[in-house]
């Protein structure tokens, strides 16, 4: 029973960590209506930057901030390619994603393990002194929960500002943004910057959690994020009072639980991406029953 509880706790922790990525995809896919494939590159970018900095002895909390900065730059690249060079949204993301694969190899090689002597955000002060009495698995749970709630709060507040409302309007009705005498291109770029910063943050936390970086860890993250967003928004469709960020946070946890369940039931881990893809298809089709049709470009 104890083993089961620990597994449940670490699965929910995974859900929290990946919810940071889900927030990002919520902004691009749901608010901006932009299928942003650069996610598969900016997620490992966050991890690569973090791994490279950690082994050089940089403060673990500072690595989160720097990883976000790197992700923001990746988002900026996709945004500029799409808006200024007028490349289609899907292709702009693919170009950034492909370029980032090489950049990530340059930063951290194909694999980088972080030694046990290096402190991660789950061990270093002030977390170490505050939660020192708890086991690592509890600490991971609490730190991820704090992070995910902190960024949820920041985003919820931002969406209520003038700028945040204009961002939402950009995805809802770009023509209106133009008639409000505002540059819709600038808002798209801003949305991509924020989204990819969050995605890279998720990559960074995953790197802390696993103590490793792998150049292939980005594969399928976009699909995971989309699935989590769609699960979350489908669950809460009947409850319009529930905030989008809450919905996708729940979506992320539910999705990670489904995958864990599939593995626990004996499906080999090598089939993980296949399960991910099938699960995503099932969710899309279920979502369709009420929705009408699969979202274009999805």
């Amino acid at each position: 029973m104890n083993v089961f509880l620990e597994l449940a706790e670490s699965t929910i922790t995974q859900g929290f960590i990946y919810a940071l990525l889900t927030y990002g995809i919520y902004i691009t896919y749901k608010l901006l209506d932009f299928p942003d494939l650069s996610v598969d590159g900016s997620f490992p970018l966050g991890a690569a930057v973090t791994a490279a900095l950690l082994i050089r002895g940089v403060n673990p909390f500072l690595t989160l901030v720097i990883a976000m900065g790197a992700g923001a730059l990746a988002g900026l690249a996709t945004g500029l390619i799409h808006v200024k060079l007028k490349v289609r949204d899907l292709l702009a993301g693919i170009i950034t994603m492909t370029a980032l694969f090489s950049i990530n190899l340059q930063i951290a090689g194909s694999n980088l393990n972080i030694g046990r002597d290096v402190d991660t955000i789950f061990v270093a002060a002030p977390v170490g002194s505050l939660l020192g009495g708890l086991s690592l698995i509890h600490r991971k749970f609490i730190v991820s929960l704090v992070l995910v709630l902190l960024f949820k709060l920041i985003l919820d507040l931002y969406f209520k500002t003038k700028n945040g409302m204009l961002l939402r309007a950009t995805g809802d009705n770009a023509t209106l943004v133009t008639t409000l005498a505002q540059d819709k291109g600038k808002m798209k770029i801003l949305g991509l910057v924020i989204a990819n910063a969050l995605v890279a943050l998720a990559g960074s936390v995953v790197c802390h959690e696993q103590r490793s970086f792998s150049s292939t860890m980005g594969t399928g993250q976009m699909v995971f994020g989309l699935a989590a967003v769609i699960i979350g928004t489908t669950i809460f469709k009947k409850f319009p009072g529930v905030k989008g960020t809450t919905a996708v946070l729940v979506g992320s946890v539910v999705y990670k639980c489904c995958i864990q369940l599939a593995i626990s039931l004996g499906l080999p881990a090598n089939l993980l991406k296949l399960i991910t893809a099938v699960l995503f298809l099932v969710i899309l089709v279920i979502g369709n029953v009420g929705e009408g049709k699969v979202k274009r470009n999805a």
Binding site: K160, K162, N163, R168, D172, A181
Partner: peptide, 26 residues
């Protein structure tokens, strides 16, 4: 109009035309 935003949010957006869309309350 923006279909997924409320009447108040829509009018607030329109009311801010010509001004800065900063980080003050929307």
């Amino acid at each position: 109009t923006c279909p997924n935003m409320t009447m108040l949010e829509n009018l607030s957006l329109a009311d801010n035309k010509g001004k800065r869309f900063g980080l003050s309350r929307g």
